[in-house]
Nucleic acid binder design. Structure first.
Lengths: 110, 110
DNA sequence: CTTAGATACATAATTCACTTATGTATTAAT
DNA sequence: ATTAATACATAAGTGAATTATGTATCTAAG
């Protein structure tokens, strides 16, 4: 598990990019996909995820569709065109940040 | 300037590594060195730096010497042996985090 | 069958590292 | 003389996260 401090500020970027790469997904599915991609090192908590999804939806970055699976309700999220722009922005931002950190820490990242 | 959110959790790592690479430094000097290394993209605020330095000193990671420069007082910080271990740990932690993020975001970092 | 663990959503209370604001004082430049 | 840079320090406020709590369904084990 990574230091939770480092993870701060990356949640939105992660959620958006995973949605871009995997298309339509529901909340729980996102947590599992991130767990898998990160080899159990990034565990997104529900208390962080759901408010983040609601915020992105309210901002018009995500759209939702609900589906009934048996008696359960699933809420599927997918990117809007605006959301697609935001993913690129956020990922670029992160890549730039890492380049800068590489210089400051004098380490070869990647 | 980078999104301040991304910077969260990296301050200690930055301070420790810069001190390791540059030896004895005073607070203001650290802010300037980081500004320089980051090409003006990371600007450490005093409200963040001084409490961080005091905390690291209290934990035995840094030791201090004060010097009088004219009528000014400068407080020089340097790593203790414990601090030297911590730098390695923190930098490794960060590098691992970046590797994980590379997988999750499917981007080539570095 | 019933209990535990996984699935699936949601929100409220709390934390804590940071930003912003404020304060003091010296030195250099215009 | 006034502004900007140098140099330290701390208090108040912010906000994205963690932690805790709540509801409910599905599945596997014993």
């Amino acid at each position: 598990m990574h230091s939770p401090e480092l993870l701060k500020g990356t949640l939105q970027t992660i959620v958006l990019k995973v949605l871009k790469d995997n298309g339509r997904m529901y909340g729980y599915e996102i947590t599992q996909r991130v767990k898998e991609l990160s080899d159990d090192r990034i565990l997104i908590t529900e208390g962080a995820l759901y408010p983040a999804l609601h915020k992105l939806e309210a901002e018009g970055m995500l759209k939702t569709e609900t589906e009934n699976i048996g008696k359960r309700v699933r809420k599927y999220y997918s990117l809007t065109p605006q959301g697609r722009s935001l993913v690129k922005e956020r990922v670029n931002e992160f890549v730039e940040f890492i380049k800068t950190m590489g210089n400051v820490l004098q380490v070869n990242l990647g």
